[in-house]
Nucleic acid binder design. Structure first.
Lengths: 317, 317
DNA sequence: CTGTTAGCGCCTTCAC
DNA sequence: GTGAAGGCGCTAACAG
């Protein structure tokens, strides 16, 4: 292993000069600095991160902690990872993955947290380093989230603009703020334009949505659009319609929400509100790094709300 | 920050005794050890990983390097991550994510590599730490891979056993060993049983497969099964069949390969050879850790080939 | 069994 | 501008 010392000897300077050439180049004579740089290249010198961390108390490592079993984790986290990773790389930080049951090995300069439940907050509070959440929270921590209200408001408006006259909101059967935001977005859009509408909440699975359509088919006149709180529900709904002989998109419209997986896979492409996950990942990383550089009081909670974009496809006319 | 020293003082011993209580408990009197443990608890002592790494030259960090743009990365890597992460956690190692353009920050004890191209091998060779590949390689590095031959052999046999009398292999249009293995698996199964068969290679997209069926529909008599080299192709094929009025699974069978995403999403479930990605991730981690503990020569290349399992669903009878 | 000494590689502080 | 000394937190090696 090549150390600072090795470089110093070869360059005929003290190791301090080498250290300075790296960390405070302006304090070293140009001539010396370039010759030191050259020696570092020749020797393939790589600073020892552990030694740096030990003395500087900064690790240049960010931990992403996912409070869910990785096994059941949505694959779309991959896009999030990409965003976080891209941004961290730009600033020469490393990304370390952890789960709630991870053995905590090694320090870090900050955390990005996602999938937190109520019982996990005790752990969060005890953290010494800055924290950014992925997803809304009411505990005053900075967070990045998607604009659930806007997403459903806009997709509903879109359905109406395409001439569908009866709207059904297919929500997810959970008691979470994000779900209420989506519901409210739908309600507001519907109220404004005065079309007829109904709401239902289902478990977030394709087949549940399909069964729902099967059982309630009589309730849906032609010219109905289903505005769904997830793409899984959207796909299930579309299937149910087809099974009943309904025509998509001519007589029935379907709009999903999330838009991560399906574009690559599903054969019939679903119109969907697409969360820009890569952007959201980058935003979370950026926010965290800024908190690390400028430690601020917990008073002013920073909320970064990112809008989804409608991606139109074959399930709406 | 609580250090060894703090614990030592509070427990009225030297810091070495505390260090030993942690790393070599058997060398410390039971009584002393328990009292030290208690003090550590009280003080919430956490060993400083940087200091440990510095002195022991072991970081307990494993890097997963994905040689693809994260942006385009298959979401199924998430399952791989889960497997790797689970296994590493069991052994108290941390997982660090890197991409080819990552700034190399910090050391690690070993690498798991995936998505490598020819031009990346120079980088790999210069690594000091043990390496395990995800996916076959001919450079002599240990690797974990799925058994492509077996997967297609078995799915083909299955199709035949279900009474389909004409078989079509829908391969991926790439010049890679894994593709030839799949093709050979198909050929062998077909030859053994003497059914009629044909092969085609397509770009790995749903719609390409659908178009293919559309254009060649006349070639496919009833009782044809399509054995596909990916689930995307499988879905596209199934769609094509349906569009031509073919009945799946009664008159036409479709079998995919991969089986990661779709079970959660697609409404019509595809019969598919499912790669146990979580298991493969764990295997890669296990192999790497074993290489770290017992450094061996590069002579005997360890190959871990993991079999896929058929997951039968609605696209075959 | 337990304590003392020394040093891992780097950076801060203080001399020159 | 540059160098020397000291110490970050921990552990291996040697004393006792």
């Amino acid at each position: 292993m090549v150390t600072l010392n090795d470089v110093a000897e070869r360059a005929n300077v003290s190791k301090m000069t080498v250290s300075r050439a790296i960390n405070h180049p302006e304090q070293v004579r140009d001539e010396l600095r370039t010759s030191i740089m050259q020696v570092m290249q020749e020797l393939h010198y790589q600073p020892n991160a552990a030694a740096r961390a030990l003395v500087s108390r900064s690790t240049r490592v960010i931990k992403l902690t996912i409070f869910e079993d990785m096994d059941t984790t949505e694959p779309y986290y991959m896009m999030l990872l990409a965003g976080i990773s891209n941004e961290l790389n730009r600033h020469q930080y490393a990304l370390q993955l952890a789960t709630s049951n991870s053995y905590q090995v090694g320090e870090c300069d900050g955390y990005i947290l996602t999938g937190i439940r109520q019982k996990d907050y005790a752990w969060v509070e005890q953290l010494q380093q800055p924290v950014v959440f992925f997803g809304r929270n009411q505990q005053g921590y900075d967070y990045v989230d998607t604009d659930n209200y806007q997403a459903l408001y806009e997709s509903t408006r879109y359905a109406i603009s395409r001439g569908y006259e009866h709207l059904v909101f297919v929500g997810i059967d959970v008691d979470e703020p994000f779900e209420y935001d989506r519901e409210t977005g739908f309600r507001d859009a519907v109220t404004e334009s005065g079309v007829s509408a109904q709401l239902v909440k289902l478990a977030n699975h394709c087949h549940v949505a399909t069964d729902y359509v099967q059982q309630h088919w009589a309730e849906f006149p032609k010219n109905t659009a289903f505005v769904c709180a997830s793409d899984r529900l959207g796909i299930g709904i579309e299937d149910g319609i087809t099974l009943n002989g309904g025509k998509v998109p001519d007589d029935y419209g379907v709009i999903g929400f999330d838009g991560v997986l399906l574009n690559q896979i599903a054969s019939k492409r679903l119109t969907t509100m697409q969360q820009p996950l890569e952007v959201m990942g980058r935003a979370a990383a950026k926010l965290l790094l800024s908190n690390i550089q400028h430690p601020h009081e917990r008073q002013d909670q920073e909320k970064i709300i990112i809008k989804s974009r409608l991606s139109t496809a074959e399930s709406t006319r």
